[in-house]
Nucleic acid binder design. Structure first.
Lengths: 241, 241
DNA sequence: AAGTGGTCTAGACCACCTT
DNA sequence: AGGTGGTCTAGACCACTTA
């Protein structure tokens, strides 16, 4: 029987998942920047699907904190201001201190080896100036720390915040000397974990976060010309419930 | 021209928001219990809407952590096992310690008065055995602590976890003597904040969380046996404390 | 007063079951 | 095979914003 609709069997996964993955990647990659309108008709054409999967994907991304949906007004990439950055890094600092402290308690020697291996790859990527690989290795470093803790829930929260901050980094970048400092901070964290020094590991992780926060705020305050989208309007921050 | 559809002007908000609110309330109230299937056709009939708003609401609730959606298999109320409870309370303990410690630093005298007022109302509700009011006042107590910190992002995370645990409490309840213990723990937190003793406030809040976690696990008398799914974890995260 | 875009319905398609 | 229910499309309705 001939199918009325698409004969392509491009159904490896559900459509709304692929749409959500695509939009998420574009937000993290900086293709869609914070504050940008995400119009359903445009996305429908671009991704060759109808409105329903797009709308479901946007709802899901709102749940992840990457998108804000205002009733009858549509979706925008979550706008990020200095306050939100500070709040997120405050939470990140608390969680990362927990991760590092827990790692100092329970990490196996193999896991510590793996941390060091990732750290070396990160070092290489920085030397080569390979920005995407740099971001990926940094992500792996902190993900492994989270996994060692065994707390998936905490890791989920942390990952969502990381995605938001990656979007910021893609828009504003790092300050010139931040990269070499990051390496030193990672080494201090690894050193503390290896020494099984919980307090030092917690402190090192927290400081790593604080300095990253300071850096991103400095970078972001370098006035990026307002893009040619619509007027800023008011910030809506429609917090659910 | 006559409207083809409903002429009722029952459009105070969007449909998918009302559906999400309804389902969320029912999960928290225990009408829909963890693990229960949420079938779209049933919800459509029950709530008198079509599938699209229901599906969008489910996606949103998945983002909030109350619902799990499996591709081509549908939605279920998020199943909760002992591991998830421990993970959530671990995060809660960290966040509540932060909230209480921050409150000890920056709470105004008026805010502390308000905390005490809520505490008294909670006391009254417990004496009267008014369970819904009890839950509501307890929620207010911890929400105010979160608001004092000024960190909305942390508060959002904490609120989501609170919703999940309220669903658990609605299903399993408290142990007999837990209520009076809660009052004492809240008083200790208030006392530490009033004394501006950061470390004591953090410790009191963390202990409050840990005891609540222990209580709910006992009430649920959950055996964390691995279910029919695969068991990838080899090393169990040493049962904390 | 159009137009744009968000929202919702009805129905078709199709994946995963049961029998 | 048949049924149940998840998924997607097409199109209608409607809120908000242009001019």
């Amino acid at each position: 029987m001939g199918s009325v609709l698409l004969d392509e069997f491009a159904h490896s996964d559900t459509s709304y998942r692929r749409v959500a993955d695509t939009i998420r990647d574009r937000i993290i990659a900086g293709t869609y920047t914070p504050g940008m309108r995400l119009k359903v008709p445009t996305l429908c054409i671009d991704l060759a699907v109808s409105s329903n999967p797009v709308r479901e994907a946007l709802q899901q991304l709102q749940g992840e904190g990457l998108v804000v949906i205002a009733p009858n007004k549509g979706a925008t990439v979550r706008p990020i201001d200095a306050r939100l950055i500070r709040e997120i890094y405050e939470v990140n600092g608390i969680l990362d201190a927990f991760f590092a402290g827990r790692a100092a308690q329970i990490a196996t020697d193999e896991q510590i080896m793996e941390l060091i291996a990732i750290h070396r790859k990160l070092e290489q990527a920085m030397l080569k100036g390979d920005v995407p690989k740099r971001a990926d290795n940094n992500h792996q470093f902190h993900s492994l720390l989270g996994e060692i803790s065994g707390n998936r829930e905490a890791l989920t929260v942390r990952l969502r915040h990381r995605n938001l901050m990656r979007a910021m980094r893609m828009k504003y970048g790092f300050s010139a000397d931040r990269e070499s400092i990051v390496l030193g901070e990672h080494e201090e964290i690894i050193s503390a974990i290896s020494a099984r020094d919980v307090a030092r590991a917690e402190y090192a992780a927290k400081m790593h976060c604080l300095r990253s926060c300071d850096d991103i705020i400095i970078q972001a305050s370098i006035e990026p010309r307002p893009s040619a989208t619509q007027q800023p309007a008011k910030r809506l921050t429609a917090t659910s419930n």
